[in-house]
Design a binder for these strands. Sequence first.
DNA 1: ACAAAAGTGTTTTTTATACACCCATGC
DNA 2: GCATGGGTGTATAAAAAACACTTTTGT
Lengths: 248, 248
Amino acid sequence: MKFNSETETESDTQTVNLANFKVGVDNVIFSVDTQYNRLLVLLRKRKEQPHENRWSLPGTLVRQGESLQEAAYRTLAEKIRVNNLYLEQLYTFGDPGRDPREAPESFGVRYLSVSYFALVRYEEAELIAKPSVNLAWYQVKEVPQLAFDHNQILEYGYRRLRNKLEYSPIAFDVLPERFTLNDLYQLYCTVLGENFSDYSNFRSRLLKLGFLSDTGVKVSRGAGRPASLYCFDKVAFMPFKDKPLVFI
Amino acid sequence: MKFNSETETESDTQTVNLANFKVGVDNVIFSVDTQYNRLLVLLRKRKEQPHENRWSLPGTLVRQGESLQEAAYRTLAEKIRVNNLYLEQLYTFGDPGRDPREAPESFGVRYLSVSYFALVRYEEAELIAKPSVNLAWYQVKEVPQLAFDHNQILEYGYRRLRNKLEYSPIAFDVLPERFTLNDLYQLYCTVLGENFSDYSNFRSRLLKLGFLSDTGVKVSRGAGRPASLYCFDKVAFMPFKDKPLVFI
DNA sequence: ACAAAAGTGTTTTTTATACACCCATGC
DNA sequence: GCATGGGTGTATAAAAAACACTTTTGT
């Protein structure tokens, strides 16, 4: 085959057979239950073919005029009501054969899944439908075999969650406007495990960075000294944006 | 609207209008020219509508039976010949209106772009077609306005490249089997800038990690003491896999 | 001999880690 | 008073950063 500057075009469109796609969105929705120190993921039992009666990640097909992120958010909003959340695109799975509806020999329609991961707090994530045999929070460590390649997507999302929490201020999207340093610490503990740092070191490191401001307001939760409510100062955080920053 | 456990299905398929998609792959192909300390990106001038005569990222539509990564690799292999490269999926852009061929009011076919980024060394990346007015390496700092949202994709890829280089062993996919520590250092310098670390600290930090083994073979390049050739020891690297690791 | 590039070591500063201790509240 | 959780400080270890110095080659 000979190449010259005349052949530098997008090498398709006419001669070869292009794949046909349906595009869907699948969500890894994590919730942090700091009270019982559990990291949960929302699963839905499929009631249709293929993989009928298998647990799966909540997903949807993308509608006309709808952005990918909007589709992801819609899927989430149909399942839970929540005030504070973090949502970001994860990865796109689109290899041939990932959905049995595409017969490999027939080169039928391919099902492409753009996955998103979301993080919410369990305490404020209210399930719209009652928890049932068809929709449930599973502990990440205890998820069963899922439909399609959803175990792989979940694994991918879990890794991303831990990295994001360590290197980005996503915790402040998930917590309410005002929170105690212990709220923050518990969130980190639940996701990263207890041994990631001790509380006092966690405190001093974070406060030294200077983007958490003490509102002066105190809250008392049962026994013990009342805690200060802090809030995340976006302006003070600016200099850290885009810089590798460790939050441990 | 009332939800109960009977409505917990994928909320689409029948009633609402789903978007129709064409799925393409766009590549941010970086090359590191350590000799002149330049970071380059491969651009292609479009010779078709829309955005005729605009520079763009090399891309293609996905073929039947072809995985996304295969499509990305095919696009790359049509432009350059290379022995060592790093290739990974970047992000998926699929918002309505990103391609003018989709008339926003008509809800026509949507063009979804799964972007990939690649890293190669300029020294070994041989352009298959001669550099021409239609295909060229641009310095990342000097890229013109590109077609579609390709400037945004490039920006995204550039950020990912710097992060990956700092935290992952991608340099060893790009370098040949055996390389000098200076080769490695130059690569880092070109991507991250000269000030990221001084050479002697870079050396000792990397060698202390223990996954670079000295082959004993020396190479002499002009004047000066000959350098040892090292190779990346995959087995010795195993314990660091999946752990946050800084390579600076 | 000397410039050039490779490689080693040493000092200083900063950051991480472990842990002891004080403070304010409910009961 | 004392258990409980909030908050501060200090001593030690480890790592990052700066830089001086030695070693081996080509010319």
